[in-house]
């Protein structure tokens, strides 16, 4: 019997148990095959629940199980690295009808995913907060700031940092309804989701793209003051290096 037949019936419980499987004593395997069906569904569903804790908390056990069961059948893992599984889960949630009460759910899933990516990202020693202030006025605008590999940036129409904390029971006050740009940093080993100041997303994204500090400030528009965002980046270990290497 081919693994194709075994595989297809694993993910589709409406298909009959494949032929020529026995109980070891000559009788058909019957529900013994269901052990494998169950192992696949439960283990992948658990992987998703572990990887998307705030999403799972918002949905509750029953609803999360129902949605994860659909997702894992449509999108089984493409590699054995389950620590990466579920990259397509936020977009999948965007396509689900009936989530009207939780319009922010896919953004919470994006935040869960960003936190997980930050957790497993490469290590980097952050620069000391004073290092930037030590640069003179000429060098500073030409410098490039390298963000740490763990840094993740998200823009949302919802206050996702507060919603996540509320969902996980880390905060009791219900979130205020406001759009929120978020940076995930990892000062040590624990990722930290932090709301960014106004224009902070565009500024941090410009830095990450390799833009010089002066240009990154300018492209955020007149009147933009980078001080608050820079202070937040420095205080939370988000900058791994300053490159002052030769003016062009």
């Amino acid at each position: 019997m081919s693994q194709t037949a075994f595989h297809h019936a694993l993910l589709d419980a409406t298909r009959p148990v494949p032929q020529n499987l026995t109980d070891g004593m000559g009788r058909p395997a019957g529900r013994r095959y269901a052990v494998y069906r169950n192992n696949v569904a439960v283990s992948l569903s658990e992987a998703l629940a572990t990887g998307f804790p705030a999403t799972a908390a918002l949905l509750g056990e029953t609803n999360f199980a129902r949605l994860s069961a659909r997702f894992l059948r449509q999108h089984p893992p493409a590699s054995p690295l389950l620590l990466q599984y579920g990259a397509g889960f936020p977009a999948f949630l965007d396509g689900i009808d009936g989530l009207g009460r939780l319009p922010f759910l896919s953004d919470i899933a994006r935040l869960d995913l960003a936190l997980r990516r930050a957790y497993h990202a490469a290590d980097a020693r952050p620069i000391a907060p004073e290092a930037l202030a030590a640069l003179d006025a000429e060098t500073l605008p030409a410098a490039r700031l390298h963000l740490a590999p763990a840094v993740q940036l998200l823009a949302s129409r919802w206050p996702i940092v507060e919603i996540r904390a509320y969902a996980l029971g880390e905060r009791t006050a219900p979130p205020a309804s406001a759009a929120q740009d978020v940076i995930v940093t990892r000062p040590g080993f624990d990722p930290l989701p932090l709301p960014l100041p106004a224009q902070g997303f565009a500024f941090a994204a410009a830095l990450r793209s390799g833009m010089r500090l002066g240009d990154a400030v300018t492209q955020c528009g007149p009147g933009f003051d980078p001080a608050a965002t820079l202070a937040l980046l420095l205080a939370n270990g988000a900058i791994a290096a300053i490159d002052t290497g030769g003016a062009e």
Binding site: N39, L44, P77, A78, P80
Partner: peptide, 17 residues
């Protein structure tokens, strides 16, 4: 055992003839 087929990883140790 096997666990990957058609580039889908099924996260279980599946049996072999």
């Amino acid at each position: 055992a096997w666990s990957t087929h058609d580039s889908a990883f099924l996260n279980d140790l599946l049996p072999l003839p």
